[in-house]
Simulated scan of single mutants.
Amino acid sequence: MRAESRVAVCLPRTVNLVVALPAVIKAGGAYVPSDPDHPRSRVDSILRHADPLLVLDTEALASVDRAACPDTAPDVVVRPENTRYVICTSGSTGQPQGVAIPRGAVANYLATTRRRFPLSSADRMLFSTTVAFDMADTELYLPFTGGAAMVVAGKDTVADPSAVLDLIRRQGVTAVQAVPVRLAETPAKQAAEVFNMYGPTETVTWCSEARVKAGEGAPIGRPVGNTCAPPTTR
């Protein structure tokens, strides 16, 4: 595998997915995430669009001879400008459109987010977002930058708001990321802090953040490190 070789990863939200994505990055490749629970037509469309070197799904993993795999680090050179992943959005056309995100941009985002939300070994972050949505980046990588634990929510749990709440309480989750409609189903009112995060796919997940205060609106807020925002942004 060479730098930026595309690897489609189509795995359910389990430990295999959590390991597979960093493995592709470690090997120098660029992963193309898709959700196996999405319609087959969409998954096939993403695969045609991405034209990956390899499709890593449950069947492919089952056929791997792990004993034959080397235990040494891959010999590959990558740079900040090399692609880390290609995320497919529907945009205005309704058809998957790939957006290539460089490694350096993700590293910058995680470094900034870690400073603003310094998770530690005492924290646990919920991983409940489909990997096909770039919002999952925060849940996938932020916990490990500070030694926190990741609590993986299976698809059946995510589909049931009460099950999500039970998982949060049972596992002692301290950090949750969710779209606004989902926050209505989680104990947002019990949180020590609530933040509004904003950003399109092209700017790497979130490009600005602002603390939300009760009874007030949710401004876009300030930009992440090493970036700027229009003067009208508060």
Rank of each mutant, 00 (worst) to 15 (best):
R169G: 01
L165Q: 06
C207T: 07
R169K: 08
K189C: 13
V179S: 05
V158K: 05
A175F: 15
Q177N: 15
A188L: 14
L165K: 04
G172T: 01
D166L: 02
K155A: 11
Q190Y: 07
P161N: 07
M197A: 08
V204I: 08
D156A: 14
A184D: 15
R182F: 10
V173A: 00
P200I: 06
K189H: 14
V173S: 00
G199F: 04
A153M: 11
P187D: 12
V181S: 15
K189Q: 15
V164I: 04
V176N: 03
P161C: 05
K189M: 15
T186Y: 14
M197T: 09
Q171F: 01
V179M: 06
A191H: 04
A178V: 03
M197C: 12
G199V: 05
G154H: 13
A188V: 15
M197V: 12
A192I: 12
V152T: 13
V173C: 00
T186L: 10
P187A: 09
W206L: 05
S162A: 14
D166E: 11
A191D: 03
Q190R: 10
L183I: 10
D166Y: 01
E193C: 09
Q171L: 01
N196Q: 11
T201D: 05
E193K: 15
W206F: 12
V176D: 02
A184L: 14
Q177T: 14
P200D: 07
V176T: 04
E185P: 07
A188D: 08
R169M: 01
Q171A: 03
A184F: 12
A163Q: 03
G154Y: 09
L167F: 02
V176L: 05
V158E: 13
N196W: 05
T201W: 04
A159P: 07
M150N: 07
K155P: 14
E202V: 08
V176C: 04
I168Q: 00
T203Q: 13
T203S: 14
R169A: 02
M150K: 07
A191M: 06
A184W: 14
Q190L: 06
G199I: 07
G154Q: 15
A184K: 09
V181Q: 13
Q171G: 00
E193Q: 08
V194Q: 09
I168W: 00
V181Y: 10
M197L: 15
T174S: 13
R169P: 00
T174D: 01
T186Q: 12
T157N: 12
S162Q: 12
K189F: 11
M197Y: 12
C207Q: 10
R170S: 01
Q171Y: 00
K189Y: 12
V151C: 03
T201H: 03
A178T: 02
A163W: 01
V164T: 01
D160R: 12
V173D: 00
P187R: 08
A188F: 15
T205F: 11
A175C: 15
G154V: 13
A163F: 02
L165P: 02
V204L: 10
S162I: 04
P161R: 04
V151Y: 02
R170F: 00
T203E: 10
T157F: 07
L183S: 07
R169Q: 02
D160Q: 09
T174L: 02
C207A: 08
L183M: 14
R182E: 10
A175S: 14
D156E: 15
A192M: 12
T186C: 13
Q177W: 12
E193R: 09
Q171T: 02
K155S: 14
M150Y: 08
L183R: 12
A175N: 10
V152E: 04
P180A: 15
